[in-house]
Design a protein around this nucleic acid. Sequence first.
DNA 1: ATAACAGTTGAACAACTATTCAACTGATGA
DNA 2: TCATCAGTTGAATAGTTGTTCAACTGTTAT
Lengths: 120, 120
Amino acid sequence: MSKNEFICDCNIIHEEIVKKTLSKMPDEYLFNKLAEFFKILGDTTRARILFALDQNEMCVCDIANVLGMSKSSISHQLGILRRSGIVKCRRVGKEVYYMLDDEHVQEVFEVGIEHIEHRK
Amino acid sequence: MSKNEFICDCNIIHEEIVKKTLSKMPDEYLFNKLAEFFKILGDTTRARILFALDQNEMCVCDIANVLGMSKSSISHQLGILRRSGIVKCRRVGKEVYYMLDDEHVQEVFEVGIEHIEHRK
DNA sequence: ATAACAGTTGAACAACTATTCAACTGATGA
DNA sequence: TCATCAGTTGAATAGTTGTTCAACTGTTAT
């Protein structure tokens, strides 16, 4: 087998390892979705919103006050969380109440906190 | 208590909920660290590197070949993963072998995959 | 009707980030 | 010693993203 199958500019490649690993790699779709999910959790504002919503469902103004930020920026972030299926909302009169819609968020946060504690 | 303590431009706030939630919010440090951790996982290239390293320890060229990317870009991303304590490496001659250095990554990935499966 | 208010949305801007390129380091072997 | 090769690194660039601002919905109450 020629080295030319491989794209990298190097001579010594561990062909067997590369082939074996390639055969076990999930498809692009999974990695895109996985990265998308973690990217959403990887923002301080969104992480704080999710932590707050884990305590209570809350309206946009309440969240804005808890985080000390403007309604607009909170609403933008809630839109991202809503479109990704992580939170859902219900309207009551003029107010819109947001709540968590994914039990995996809590789980992932717990492991994340373990990671931080472990690295101290 | 005056509404003026609160920063958001709205009249109806649920004071008790806001205060209770505020008292339960972890400090800024935790959210920064948490977001930093998830931000690192929230990139397709890094997610694929970590998945590959979960199969075998590998040198930079092997990883570059598995992902179909340049040595340089892989090395940049490995640097980020190394500095955050998620991977470690050992040099053997001219080659540098990378491996996972955090069992929380696998855990978090599993929950992330559950999340994706659940959302299909 | 219309005023008031909670919330949303799009455009603009600034800050950040991933990849590329080129120059570099450090180890090997001829 | 010198050429070669694996890997690193900094600067540059293009693409992405979070917040702000202003204009807009939709609901309530007068």
